[in-house]
Design a protein around this nucleic acid. Structure first.
Lengths: 237, 237
DNA sequence: GTCTATAACCGGATAGAC
DNA sequence: GTCTATCCGGTTATAGAC
């Protein structure tokens, strides 16, 4: 009995993985909109209905993709972080790796933000605590901050990972719109903004800035707390 | 001959307006996704094909809505600006009016951001110079800045309207996710961020901050210049 | 140039049999 | 868990009327 269940789960996992791989493959080739669920099913050798058995909608394929992106990003970042000491170098490395990892999906990635910005979407990065990717991603930035010797005030240090995650979203948004060859502009943007952010963080850490910093951080905390749940409003669908 | 053409155009405009009104009405009631093109046509008393004659797709209805939002916002802002002198008061008034104007469309507005964030969408506020709404919207913030006596350095003054427009987008994004009754949280967010922004602008205007300010503004200029055209990459569709 | 009516296509999603 | 059949709605096409 136990055995049987185990095998079945395994088989299910395999099919699910197969469908996801196939989908991502076609997404890379043709983009998201141009890829039909029927095409995915056919190429994966399963029935249309079966893809819906594993992924409730086409959008859920993106969610799975999201998780995988993070896994790759994390795997690439950890060794890089071991070699860097300063906040600036660590942040720059992690941000650049994010783009490296996403590179093969540039044209497909536009859809990411499209659905991510939709409050009612399961992909919305702000709500849906059910979605752990966001927290994992913020945790990565916590690692970036923790590993430095920089003397950052506690209050700022606490919110910094979240703020850097937001910053990352901004950079990705830029990257999606960046048509320059090899995404040169995005890499340049990262270098410049990291430099600037580093300076700003040090400026904000100055005791002279304490009142302003406190006010700004209170605001950030408010925003964080306000956002996570909008599930209540619209129960339907 | 001339007469005829004029009359016909007029009639066309009326029909177009009728379709848009009807669409917005149903959008307000049922939301965007739940509103079918067939329902719009039926309620407006026109044939399905006719709605496509005036609006190339369902998304283009949103674009028209966008323009109308701005018109209303502008009309509400101008008189308000005449009564305010300080940058802080002017900015606060304009931001609050933005939410006032959008209020009836709260649940529908989620789609705005969804499509707006998509690089390939005609609604993307960054590309598509064909879309004049963005420039008009930035121009409104230019008015907000110009009308004050605050001694803001020229370089910052030049970019400030754009930056405030970005800030507005952030606030709207927050509002879309804000389920609090009467959007109280969004109004509070506006009050707090306006206060903070006011302080930051004055801080950035300090001669002591000149190098950092210059660096930040160079960055902003770079971003502005990089974004506006991604039409080239994807010609298809 | 504006509009109707109707049918058809296409692709996301669902139902229900096996 | 997998399949086939079907629905539903955005979109297109056609053919013709004012």
């Amino acid at each position: 009995m136990r055995k049987k269940k185990a095998t079945k789960t395994l088989k299910g996992d395999q099919t699910k993985a197969l469908i996801l791989e196939t989908a991502l493959e076609i997404f890379r080739e043709r983009g998201y909109e141009e890829t039909t669920m029927r095409a995915i099913a056919e190429k994966a050798g399963v029935a249309l209905g079966n893809t819906y058995y594993y992924f409730r909608s086409k959008e859920y394929l993106i969610q799975a993709f999201y998780q995988r992106l993070h896994d790759e990003h994390l795997a690439a970042s950890l060794p890089a972080l071991e070699k860097k000491e300063t906040l600036k170098a660590r942040l720059q490395a992690v941000m650049r790796l994010r783009i490296d990892v996403m590179k093969p999906y540039h044209q497909f990635a536009g859809v990411l933000f499209k659905t991510a910005a939709h409050p009612q979407s399961p992909l919305n990065p702000f709500s849906d605590e059910s979605d752990p990717v966001r927290d994992q991603s913020i945790a990565l930035f916590a690692k970036v901050v923790e590993g430095t010797k920089a003397r950052i005030p506690k209050d700022l240090q606490a919110e910094l990972p979240y703020l850097l995650w937001l910053y990352q979203m901004g950079v990705v948004l830029f990257w999606i719109h960046d048509p320059s060859p090899n995404h040169r502009r995005t890499y340049r943007l990262i270098d410049h903004t990291v430099d600037l952010l580093d300076k700003l963080i040090h400026l904000a850490s100055n005791p002279f800035m304490r009142p302003l910093r406190k006010q700004a951080l209170r605001l950030v905390a408010e925003i964080r707390e306000a956002l996570p749940d909008d599930e209540d409003e619209e129960q339907k669908k």
